[in-house]
Design a protein around this nucleic acid. Structure first.
Lengths: 141, 141
DNA sequence: ATAATAATTGAAAATGATTTTCATTAAGGA
DNA sequence: TCCTTAATGAAAATCATTTTCAATTATTAT
């Protein structure tokens, strides 16, 4: 854990956003979760910490956390509404199809591939997404 | 073009689905498009070929084409509702961020990476997604 | 500490995408 | 051609997300 959840609040503050009970509840819920959470799942969990929370505030807070690159959207075959703490630097995703756990891994081995594709296709490549799907150690044993 | 659009109709037929004017219009629209199309875009275009078409039928036809692996959903930062003809065999996507053109490329160079990640993480990896984003030859020149 | 201010809130309404329902139509095998 | 049943489009229902708005509250200046 490089970034404590307090840092997310600081980052919000440093960017001119206010620290509120609602935002604390959302941050505490999303930060450190090993599973990608949908707005509605965040709402259900965060409301246990702050009863008066509104779903709209969850959407708005997630939007800001994403804007600050503290969280990122996770794309999956069944849906693309879930978010997870962002990896540091450029990272790729590893998802367990059984339990939904998400891990990051590095892998800049793609440079060669990228260059080769650029040469073959004439594309000027700017970005890439790589995700691996499978079963985590727990789920396949 | 390995698969003519007629083949899509045959495939529908072989799987017990009927060939209708509505489905012809949708198939003719999606087949061979170089851009991923949303259901609503398919509707607008296909309706020029078959006026009475309903949006619901577009959704239902896309669902069947996806089920038969003739088309696939395209995930992008701005949305994941668009579809494009599926590549043959396992292919990866290359997307132009300017004009939206989609191309496929092969690249099983990932085997080494995949095995290495499996070893490091304990995951049993079953599938992967790789997408490159950039500017196509036309758009960056 | 207090007051002033401007951002933030939750509820409700609005929007947009997708799915379901249902009575009608039409494909395609007999 | 007839019959069965899948497929259709319209409308309603559902679900996710965004907007509106008046009330609240965090922060700044006093």
């Amino acid at each position: 854990m490089i970034t404590p959840s307090e840092t997310w609040l600081e980052q919000l503050h440093d960017n001119g956003y206010r620290i509120t009970a609602a935002r604390r509840a959302v941050v505490d819920t999303v930060f450190g979760s090993t599973h990608a959470l949908t707005p509605s799942e965040v709402f259900d969990t965060a409301r246990k910490k702050y009863r008066a929370l509104g779903l709209v505030t969850v959407y708005r807070t997630l939007e800001k956390l994403e804007e600050l690159h503290l969280i990122q959207r996770v794309h999956q075959p069944l849906g693309c509404q879930a978010f997870i703490s962002a990896g540091h630097g450029h990272q790729h995703l590893l998802l367990c199809q059984q339990c939904g756990q998400v891990e990051f891994f590095e892998g800049d081995d793609l440079d060669a591939l990228t260059k080769s594709i650029a040469r073959k296709t004439g594309y000027q490549i700017q970005e890439h997404w790589l995700q691996l799907f499978g079963l985590c150690a727990n789920c396949h044993s």
